[in-house]
Each structure stands twice: as structure tokens, then as C-alpha cells.
């Protein structure tokens, strides 16, 4: 508990609790707003020949939700990887862990405290960002029900959970924060490629969460594939966390 509190205070004092949610709001509302005003923006900037008729596509609310998620999946995930890359490896690299880990603390608590603090930050930023997106979608495009909004956030949050667990896992292996970030992103990319190549075998790959969320929003109920994918994602995250703890116990802390 002390370790967890320290993580929360640290993330508060280095302003992560301010800028991460702000960036998530920005990412989530950017596409809904810019697409809605695209016709006006083009008109104001000019450059269209007289008489040109420009048909702007009409987006349905689920499509706009997916735009927000699309931004979060690229830049949002990158931010989570960057804020988590040094959470353990950085402490080992600069030597603070030599003071902390010689105290009689449990390695399990050390890892789970870090994981929980990052989870809260990621989920908090996701909820705040998607609230912004939801607000503009309801004003500009049409209604998304509370239930749909909540389940979108919930299922997408599982994807972020997986990213955090993956980053923690690489944190326990490497002591170079940059390498942690690289390995995490590489793994996500490899998984994404594998998911595309072996579409029929890997139906429940965590990378598919977004597309099943889209299906859910269009069809109005939770497809069974989404449930399966969610369970797979949770399972993989728990496994990663267990591996992290096991590896960390055996690891040498000093350089």
C-alpha cells in the first residue's frame, strides 16, 4: 500500500495526472470536431473552384467513436508506453532500487503497485478522453447511449490494460527504458501482423478488440467474439503480470 501511494504521489507531482488526461481528451475529440467542420474549414481556407460541389460524407455516431479510438490506438498507446517504460527499469538504472529493494518489501507488491498505478492513470485518461468524445458526438452527430458508451470504454480499457502489462513485463527483463518501449511497441506490431495473417485462427487476438467494439455499436449487442477476445486479453494480462513477478524475483537488481 505504501508502495502504491508513492507511485500515485510521484505521478501527481511529475504532473502525469494532468498532461496524460489532457492529451487523451485532445486525441479523442480531435477527429469528431475536425470532421464535422471539414466543409466549413475547406470553405474558409478556399482553393475550391467556383461551382465545385463537394459532398462531405455523413458519419454515423459509431464511425466517429471508432475515429476517437483510432487516435487512441496509435498516439494514446504510444503515450502509455512512454510513461511506463522507465517505471521499474529506470529505477534500477539510476540506482534508487538499491535503496528500496534491500528493504523487506515483497517483490509482488513492488510490481503490482506499479501496475495498479499505471492502470489507474491509463483508465482515468481513457474515461476522461472518451467523455469528451462522447459529448461532441452527441451534439454533432447523434446519440450514443450511456450503455454503449460504458461498454466501449470498458472493452477498450482492456486493450490498454494489456499494453500496461506488456510494458511492465519488459520492464522486468530490461534495464534500459528505451529498450522497454521498443520491445513493447515491437510486440504490439508483431501481434497485429500475426492477427491479420492468421485471421481465422486468431479470432480472439487482443488486437481485434476495436473491430468487435465497432460491431457491438452497430449491432447493438455484445458479440460473442468480443466476450471471447476480452477474456483472452484479461488472461494474457494476468499471465504477463505473473511472469513479471517470477522474473523479477530471480533478477539481480544492481548493475
Amino acid at each position: 500500500m505504501t508502495l502504491f501511494k508513492k507511485e500515485m504521489v510521484e505521478n501527481w507531482r511529475n504532473k502525469k495526472w494532468v498532461w496524460v488526461p489532457l492529451v487523451f481528451i485532445l486525441l479523442a475529440v480531435m477527429d469528431p470536431i475536425s470532421n464535422y467542420y471539414m466543409a466549413d474549414i475547406l470553405g474558409a481556407v478556399g482553393g475550391l473552384p467556383d461551382g465545385a460541389v463537394f459532398e462531405m460524407p455523413d458519419f454515423t455516431p459509431p464511425e466517429v467513436v471508432m475515429m476517437s479510438l483510432g487516435q487512441l490506438s496509435s498516439l494514446g498507446v504510444l503515450i502509455i508506453v512512454l510513461i511506463s517504460m522507465g517505471t521499474i527499469s529506470g529505477e534500477i538504472k539510476n540506482g534508487v532500487s538499491e535503496l528500496i529493494l534491500v528493504k523487506p518489501i515483497s517483490y509482488t507488491n513492488y510490481i503490482t503497485a506499479k501496475w495498479t498505478a499505471l492502470m489507474l492513470l491509463s483508465w482515468g485518461a481513457l474515461i476522461i478522453g472518451m467523455l469528451g468524445s462522447w459529448y461532441y458526438i452527441n451534439i454533432l452527430y447523434g446519440e450514443i447511449s450511456i450503455a454503449d458508451f460504458l461498454s466501449t470504454v470498458f472493452f477498450y480499457g482492456l486493450w490498454l490494460t494489456f499494453i500496461v502489462s506488456l510494458s511492465i513485463f519488459f520492464n522486468t527483463i530490461s534495464k534500459t527504458p528505451g529498450l522497454v518501449a521498443f520491445l513493447t511497441i515491437l510486440t504490439i506490431m508483431v501481434m497485429s501482423a500475426l492477427t491479420k495473417v492468421f485471421q481465422h485462427l486468431l479470432e480472439w487476438s487482443p488486437n481485434n478488440l476495436s473491430s468487435y467494439i465497432m460491431q457491438m455499436l452497430i449491432e447493438g449487442n455484445i458479440p460473442s467474439n468480443l466476450t471471447g477476445t476480452a477474456l483472452t486479453t484479461v488472461g494474457l494480462s494476468i499471465l504477463l503480470l505473473i511472469f513479471s513477478i517470477v522474473i523479477f524475483r530471480k533478477r539481480e537488481i544492481a548493475n
Binding site: 505504501t2 508502495l3 508513492k6 510521484e10 507531482r13 511529475n14 539510476n94 540506482g95 534508487v96 538499491e98 535503496l99 528500496i100 534491500v102 528493504k103 523487506p104 518489501i105 544492481a254
Partner: peptide, 25 residues
Amino acid sequence: YLPQYPVFHPWMTGLEFLIYSAQIS
């Protein structure tokens, strides 16, 4: 244990770090 080059959490105050050290003990 005191390492040769002790590194602390620079954002903590001295008192906070000691309280933290005692609590994790």
C-alpha cells in the same frame, strides 16, 4: 545498506523519503 552512490527519489523531501523507508520496513 548504504550503496556507494546512493540515489533517492529527487521529488521527495528528506523527511518524506525517511518516512517512506520506515513504512516499507
